[in-house]
Lab assay of single mutants.
Amino acid sequence: MTYKLISNGKTLKGETTTEAVDAATAEKVFKQYANDNGVDGEWTYDDATKTFTVTE
């Protein structure tokens, strides 16, 4: 399945996607992506749209 990340960081804003077997796997990928880009904030997940959002 395709999962989307919306980043509302102070230094990184935008969207990216990943293919993953489940939401937990996608979350690990996205949290590593955010960490690699210096984004640390509040996370939410919408199962209906398969979208994670991180806001700093």
Rank of each mutant, 00 (worst) to 15 (best):
T55V: 09
T18G: 02
G38N: 09
G41A: 03
K4S: 06
D46V: 04
Y3D: 04
T25H: 11
T49H: 05
K13H: 10
K50P: 00
V54R: 00
D22S: 07
E15G: 07
Y3M: 02
T17C: 12
T44E: 10
A23L: 07
V29Q: 08
M1H: 14
E15K: 07
V21L: 13
A34W: 08
T11R: 11
A24F: 09
D40A: 12
I6N: 05
D47L: 06
K10S: 11
A24V: 11
E19K: 12
E42N: 09
T53P: 01
S7L: 15
G14D: 09
N8M: 13
G9N: 08
G14A: 12
K28R: 13
F52R: 01
N37A: 10
T49F: 04
V21T: 11
Y45P: 00
T51F: 02
T55A: 06
Y33L: 11
K28L: 10
A23W: 13
G41F: 04
G9T: 15
A23Q: 11
W43A: 01
D46S: 05
E27I: 06
E15M: 14
D40Y: 15
W43P: 00
D36G: 05
D22N: 07
A34S: 04
L12Q: 08
T2N: 06
K28H: 08
D46M: 03
A48C: 09
T16E: 05
T44C: 10
K4A: 05
N8F: 14
G9M: 12
L12P: 05
A24N: 08
A23C: 13
T17N: 05
D47R: 06
V54E: 01
T25Q: 11
G14W: 14
A34N: 02
T17S: 10
Y33K: 03
D40W: 15
K50E: 02
K10P: 15
G38P: 01
K13G: 07
A34M: 11
T49E: 05
N37E: 06
L5Q: 02
T51D: 00
T11F: 13
G14Q: 13
K50Q: 09
F30E: 01
K4D: 03
K4E: 04
N37T: 06
T44L: 08
K50A: 05
G41Y: 04
A20F: 04
T16V: 14
K4L: 08
E15A: 08
T51A: 04
K31L: 08
E19F: 15
V29F: 15
G14K: 12
T11P: 05
V39W: 15
T49P: 00
E42V: 14
T16Q: 09
V54K: 01
L12C: 14
I6Q: 06
V21C: 12
T18Q: 05
T53Y: 13
K50M: 10
E19M: 14
E27W: 14
F30M: 02
A34K: 01
Y33A: 03
T2Y: 08
K13R: 13
G38L: 06
A20D: 02
T49M: 05
F30Q: 00
A26W: 00
A26V: 02
D40I: 14
N35T: 13
D46G: 01
T11I: 12
N35E: 14
E15F: 13
K28M: 12
F30T: 01
N8W: 13
T2L: 13
V21K: 13
D40M: 13
T2C: 14
A20K: 02
Q32W: 05
K28C: 10
K28V: 09
T55I: 10
I6W: 04
T11C: 15
E56M: 09
Y45K: 00
T17F: 14
T17W: 14
Y45Q: 00
T17L: 10
G38F: 06
F30A: 00
A34F: 05
D22V: 02
T51E: 03
V21R: 11
G9D: 04
E27K: 07
N35M: 15
D22H: 03
F52D: 01
E42Q: 10
G14Y: 13
A48R: 11
F30V: 01
L12Y: 12
A26H: 00
M1P: 11
T16D: 04
W43N: 00
G14F: 15
T51R: 02
E27N: 04
T17P: 02
A24L: 11
T53K: 06
S7P: 03
Y33H: 05
G9S: 12
K4Q: 05
A23N: 05
K4N: 05
A24I: 11
M1T: 14
K4V: 12
G14N: 12
T53C: 07
N37G: 04
A48Q: 10
K10R: 13
V29G: 03
V54Q: 01
E56P: 10
E27M: 14
D46E: 06
T2V: 13
A20S: 06
M1E: 13
S7Q: 08
G41V: 03
Y45T: 00
D36C: 11
N35V: 13
D22R: 02
T11Y: 13
Y45D: 00
T55R: 06
V21M: 13
A24K: 11
T55N: 09
S7V: 15
Y33W: 15
Q32D: 07
V54L: 13
T25V: 06
K10Y: 09
V29Y: 15
T49V: 05
Y45H: 00
K28Y: 08
T18H: 06
S7G: 06
V21Y: 12
D47K: 07
Y3G: 04
T53G: 02
E15P: 09
A20R: 01
T18F: 12
K13T: 10
T17M: 09
E19G: 05
T2S: 07
V54A: 02
K31W: 06
K50R: 14
D47Y: 07
E19R: 14
A20I: 02
K50S: 05
F30H: 01
G41W: 05
A34Y: 06
G38E: 06
N37W: 13
V54F: 14
I6S: 04
T53A: 04
K13Y: 11
A24H: 09
A26Q: 00
K50Y: 08
K10I: 13
